[in-house]
Design a protein around this nucleic acid. Structure first.
Lengths: 245, 245
DNA sequence: ACTATCAAAATAATCGATTATCTGTCAAGG
DNA sequence: CCTTGACAGATAATCGATTATTTTGATAGT
C-alpha cells in the first residue's frame, strides 16, 4: 500500500496552499532559501536571461558559502531556469522567440489535457479549491504602478492555473505544468507589465473556472486553450517590439 | 539570432549520438560521473526503489567527497529518479502501479505528439537517423542470459525512441519525453527480463519507423501508441505478479 | 504497560581552504 | 600579419573538518 510515499514527482511541500503559515514553509536549509530567492530573481528579470552566474560574486552577494549556493542552483536546473555545463558553471536560461512559442504550445497541449483529466476525476474539494482560487485572483488588482501588487497577482494567477489542473491525479503531469508555468511567467513578468487592452482576463478566468466546475469538458478546455494562446500571442508581440530578435 | 544558445532545456551534450568517442563524453567532473553511475544503478534496480540513500555510506562506496555526491544526486532529482527533503536527505524514488500507469499514459500522449511533430517538421537527416537507430536496434539480440546484452539493448532501444521524436524541434518536449523514458526503463529493467511471447517487438519498431519516414502520420502515431500501451500492460502484469501493490 | 522527555548517536548541511580547469593575453615562430 | 604556445589570473570543483538537525534509545512519570 506504499504508506506515505507517493513516488517520483510526488506533490512536494514546495507550494503548499499559501494559507496562514504556522506550519513552517519547509524553507529550512540555506540551500532551499537560496533556491527561492534565485527563482524569484530570475522570474522577475532581476537576473538577466542568458547571463552567466559567477559563483564567487553570487557567494558574496548572498553571503553564503559555495555548497548551499550550488545546491540552490541545482534546483533551478530542474526548473529549467538555469543551465549548467561541466567546468563552465551556471547561467540563467536564455529567452527566445522559439522558446516562448514552444512553451505556449506545450501549455496548450499539457495544461488542457490536465484540465480535462481534472474535470473527469476531480472531486468536490477540487471544485471548491478552484472557486476559491478564482475568487482570490479576481479580487486582486494588478496595478503596474505598484510592483508589490504585481507580484501578488502573479502568485495568485499561478495558484489559479495550478489549482485548475490539480484534480488530475497525475503528479508527473502536474510537475511538468508547473515548470512550463514558471518558464512562462518569466516572459510575462519581463515583458507584460500591463494586460493588453482588448482582453478581459478576469472574465476569461471566470469562464474557464465555471466551465470546469460545471464539468463542461469541451467548453472549459476550449476557453483555457484560447486563454493560453492569447497570452502567447501578446507576449510574442512585446518580445518582438521591446527586445530580442 | 541567439548565436549558439538554445535557451531552457536546450539539447545538452548529455546523450550525444553514441558514435565512436574521440570527442569526450562531457563526463568530466566527478559529479557528472557519479550522476551517470547512480542513474545506471537506479534504473538497473541495483539501488532499490524507495530506499534511503545514506550520504556517508554512499561517500565510502563511491570513494568521493560529499560535494560531488550531492551534485550527482541533485541531477537525478531532475530526472525524477531521486527525491529529496530538507534535512532528511535523498531517497530513490519509489515505484507503484499508479506511477507506472501515469508514465504510460503520459508517454502515449507526449511521445505520440512529439512523433507527429517530428513527421511534420523533420528533415531528411532525421529520417536517416531514424532508420539507422532502427537498424542498430534490430540487429542487437536481447539475451536474458547475458546481462551485458540487455544493457546494450536498453541503450539502443532508448536511443531509437528518442531519435524517433528528435525531429520535433521542441527541446523542452524532448526533455520531458527523455524523463518519461528513463522512468519507464526502470520498470522494464526490473520487471521484464524477457519480452512477452505474444509480441514481435522488432516488427513493432519497424512499423513505427517506416510509417514515420513515409510521413504516414496517423499510422505511425497509432503504431507508437499501441507499442507504448502494450509495454504498459505487460509491465502492469509483471508488477502485480512479482511485487508491489 | 504506555507515553513523554532528554541525551547520545547518526546523519545532513555548511564552511574555508585547496586543487583542477578554463580563459585571456602576450610573445615567439612561421 | 596570423597562428601557436605558455603563462597568469579567474573561475569551478573538490576536499576535510565543523556545525546543525534529526533519529534513536533509554529513563522517568503516569
Amino acid at each position: 500500500m506504499v504508506p506515505d510515499d507517493d513516488g517520483a514527482f510526488a506533490p512536494t511541500t514546495e507550494d503548499a496552499p499559501s494559507s496562514s503559515g504556522f506550519l513552517d514553509d519547509g524553507k529550512n536549509t540555506i540551500g532551499s532559501q537560496l533556491a527561492s530567492r534565485l527563482r524569484e530573481a530570475i522570474i522577475s528579470g532581476e537576473l538577466q536571461a542568458g547571463s552567466k552566474i559567477n559563483l564567487d560574486k553570487a557567494r558574496k552577494t548572498f553571503n553564503v558559502s559555495l555548497s548551499p549556493l550550488r545546491e540552490g542552483l541545482a534546483r533551478l536546473i530542474s526548473d529549467g531556469l538555469v543551465e549548467f555545463e561541466d567546468n563552465r558553471g551556471y547561467r540563467v536560461s536564455s529567452i527566445s522567440l522559439a522558446n516562448l512559442e514552444e512553451i505556449t504550445t506545450l501549455r496548450e497541449e499539457f495544461e488542457v489535457f490536465a484540465l480535462r483529466e481534472s474535470m473527469r476525476l476531480g472531486d468536490v474539494e477540487w471544485e471548491g479549491n478552484v472557486m476559491r482560487a478564482l475568487h482570490r485572483l479576481n479580487r486582486t488588482e494588478r496595478d503596474a504602478a505598484r510592483p508589490e501588487t504585481l507580484e501578488r497577482w502573479e502568485e495568485l494567477h499561478r495558484e489559479f492555473h495550478l489549482t485548475l489542473i490539480s484534480g488530475c491525479g497525475k503528479p508527473i503531469l502536474l510537475h511538468f505544468c508547473r515548470l512550463l508555468l514558471n518558464l512562462n511567467d518569466r516572459y510575462r513578468r519581463v515583458f507584460l507589465t500591463r494586460t493588453s487592452g482588448d482582453r478581459n482576463v478576469s472574465q476569461e478566468h471566470s469562464e474557464i473556472a465555471q466551465g470546469a466546475v460545471a464539468r463542461d469538458l469541451d467548453y472549459a478546455c476550449d476557453m483555457l486553450r484560447q486563454h493560453i494562446h492569447r497570452t502567447g500571442t501578446n507576449l510574442r508581440k512585446h518580445l518582438a517590439t521591446k527586445g530580442i530578435l
